[in-house]
């Protein structure tokens, strides 16, 4: 009997000295796993143009129908993204979203990623529909030296291309039949044209 009490108490006394497992949450944040998917962020190129070209592929991939986009055409006067098209409206309904990351996978320009932000609850459901202005990272916030503001920003999103990359995206290079060439339509505006292209203008 006494033996058991001593045994139990010794366990209690031993544990008393140890740090509790509890994360005292509001004051202290647990470090999230590397592949944790939280709130979406829309990214920009280093020159400030938006990566999103309003192609609706994320909305098409979304299993919960949480993304609503309205696209519009870029004009020379008001250029929002590098290509012809940009998203005028980009709403993510966080209530519908299941944070699966399909949108991130579907995006052809790496414009949308799911970041670590998770404090999302709200009294009003309409507040949980995040509009483009809320989702878009601020100009200049893309990177702070080696410490990216978000994992999806330029420095962290994609590994740097190899030294001698194949030229897969058509670039604006001179003229054809006397016609001025158009810019890369899809909008990978910051890819550097291949210097070793066998065709020289």
């Amino acid at each position: 009997m006494a033996n058991e009490i001593i045994k139990g108490l010794s366990r209690t006394l031993r544990e008393m000295g140890r740090k509790p497992t509890t994360v005292s949450y509001p004051e202290q944040h647990r470090s999230q796993p590397a592949r944790y998917r939280g709130r979406h962020v829309l990214h920009r190129y280093e020159n400030g143009l938006e990566r999103c070209v309003g192609c609706f592929l994320c909305a098409g991939a979304c299993p919960a129908d949480a993304i609503y986009i309205e696209a519009e055409e870029n004009s020379e006067a008001q250029r929002v993204s590098p290509g012809e098209r940009f998203a005028r409206v980009f709403d993510v309904n966080m209530l519908r979203c299941i944070f699966c990351g399909y949108c991130q996978q579907a995006c052809p320009t790496g414009a949308i990623t799911l970041e670590k932000e998770y404090e999302l609850a709200s009294l009003r459901p309409e507040d949980l529909i995040y509009h483009k202005e809320q989702l878009l990272e601020a100009v200049g916030e893309q990177h702070h030296g080696d410490n990216p503001a978000t994992i999806g920003s330029n420095t962290a999103w994609q590994p740097q291309p190899p030294a001698d990359p194949p030229l897969t995206i058509p670039q604006q290079r001179g003229t054809f039949d006397g016609q001025a060439a158009s810019a890369a339509a899809v909008g990978q505006g910051n890819l550097i044209p291949d210097p070793s292209s066998p065709i020289q203008d």
Binding site: H29, L95, C97, L120, A121, L123, P125, L128
Partner: peptide, 15 residues
């Protein structure tokens, strides 16, 4: 209160 997530992590619920 509406808590988004699928499922929300315990922190999201606590928030």
């Amino acid at each position: 209160i509406f808590v988004p997530g699928c499922p929300p992590t315990p922190e999201m619920l606590l928030y």
